[in-house]
Write a protein that binds this DNA or RNA. Structure first.
Length: 99
DNA sequence: GCTTTGACTCTCG
DNA sequence: TCGAGAGCCAAAG
């Protein structure tokens, strides 16, 4: 399966109110090209299909160059899904989904 | 068609 | 503990 499709599938498996990391996706897909995952998400089709706001860095930080108005929107969306924040980072310890 | 760069992570010094 | 280098995939120039 293409890495792209695999990544999409993993993200779709993330339940509401939970988040995942690039590293986890990479491990799940069995690839070490974490950058490719970000690249794929950058060119993602649309929101409902690919909730890239549920994908954060390993330490819980949001993407610095996040589109659609920057990380603020992503943060807002996550908050709307009952995701707690620690300063400007996601509470990855509590919300990191264990696939 | 090849080269460069990018929403990353891990390992070594 | 912090900084630098390597590895991998995909899209754009």
């Amino acid at each position: 399966m293409l890495l792209q499709q695999h990544v999409y599938k993993i993200i779709q498996q993330v339940p509401k109110g939970k988040v995942t990391t690039y590293g986890d996706i990479g491990k799940k897909t069995g690839t070490k090209a974490y950058r490719a995952i970000g690249q794929v998400l950058h060119h993602n089709p649309s929101w409902p299909e690919i909730p890239c706001h549920r994908v954060v860095m390993k330490d819980g930080s949001l993407a610095p160059n996040y589109g659609m108005g920057g990380p603020s929107v992503q943060k807002k969306r996550l908050k709307d899904e009952s995701v707690t924040f620690i300063g400007n980072k996601v509470d990855i310890v509590k919300h990191k989904v264990d696939l």
